[in-house]
């Protein structure tokens, strides 16, 4: 369980007033729940994840994981990064076994468990490859295996599939869903892809930007596994798109000047919608 209460975070800036990234963010993720955090880039998603992961210390408010205040990295929560973060000097097997090694698990035992983890992401044939010998999708699979073998309570994923091509991304989404259905980990999944969020999640939190806040919450009440063709899923996608478009407009105006507005129907995949109104 992850409890976020009134969390605010500002980055100090040289010679300028500090930059408020997160402002009064509160939400709870229940045990075994899959929650996506969706928002325009730069709205503070990664910052929030880093706070929960324990990588960043200075913030106001409280963050509790399984009832305990977060003191630092580790302790039942693992992160899958967008840029995989595998160690280039280790092969797949050693990368996956690294966390177990830190726990002092003897070599034979940890390799056994690592092999199991690698099998669950379908990479058994590649255990002695080095990261640079793998494709982007394979690297991300290794990163997921590396996280899962530590048997965490909580999986924090920061845009893990953002750098992948469409097909690979689709397959990995399916695999992640399978894994989640089997293990029922608590997952916080960051993405800027609406479809991905809706397909995978029990709940989608849409963030507002500058400063980052939770703008709206969508509970995805569709049968598992979520089907892309399901009209209900489509409905959620549209709703979320509406909410997000307002934020995107804000970002665009900030960057391009105040006379800029997104055209109605500017988002090609959703031609039948009033964008940016009605929320």
């Amino acid at each position: 369980m992850i409890e976020i209460e009134k969390v605010s975070k500002a980055f100090e800036q040289k010679q300028k007033k500090s930059y408020q990234v997160l402002d009064d963010v509160s939400f709870t993720i229940k045990q075994g729940e899959f929650v996506s955090l969706l928002g325009p880039s730069g709205c503070g998603k990664s910052t929030l994840l880093n706070l929960i992961a324990g990588f960043e210390k200075s913030y106001s408010g409280t963050i509790r994981v399984n009832g305990e205040p977060v003191k630092g990295p580790g302790a039942g929560k693992v992160v899958v990064f967008q840029e995989h973060g595998l160690f280039p000097w280790m092969n797949v097997l050693d990368n996956v076994a690294f966390g177990l090694k830190q726990q002092g698990i003897p070599k034979k035992k940890r390799y056994e468990r690592a092999l199991e983890g690698i099998k669950s992401v379908h990479l058994s044939k590649f255990i002695d490859r080095y990261p640079h010998e793998l494709s982007g999708g394979m690297k991300q699979r290794v990163a997921i295996a590396r996280a899962l073998v530590m048997e965490p309570d909580i999986l924090l994923m920061d845009e893990p599939f953002a750098a992948l091509d469409e097909q690979t991304r689709y397959i990995l989404q399916k695999d992640l869903e399978d894994i989640w259905l089997k293990t029922r980990k608590t997952v916080l999944f960051i993405t800027h892809n609406i479809r991905e969020a809706v397909l995978l999640s029990d709940r989608v939190l849409v963030m507002a930007t500058q400063p980052g806040r939770i703008k709206k919450e969508f509970v995805i009440q569709a049968a598992r596994p979520h089907q892309a063709g399901d009209p209900l899923i489509h409905h959620y996608e549209n709703k979320i798109m509406e909410t997000l478009t307002e934020e995107l407009e804000k970002v665009v105006r900030e960057e391009m000047g105040h006379d800029y507005r997104l055209e109605k129907n500017a988002v090609p995949s959703l031609p039948d919608h009033d964008l940016g109104i009605g929320i």
Partner: peptide, 10 residues
């Protein structure tokens, strides 16, 4: 990211 990954793994 390597340092963070390492610390996350203990």
């Amino acid at each position: 990211i390597h340092l963070r990954a390492a610390r996350m793994m203990g």
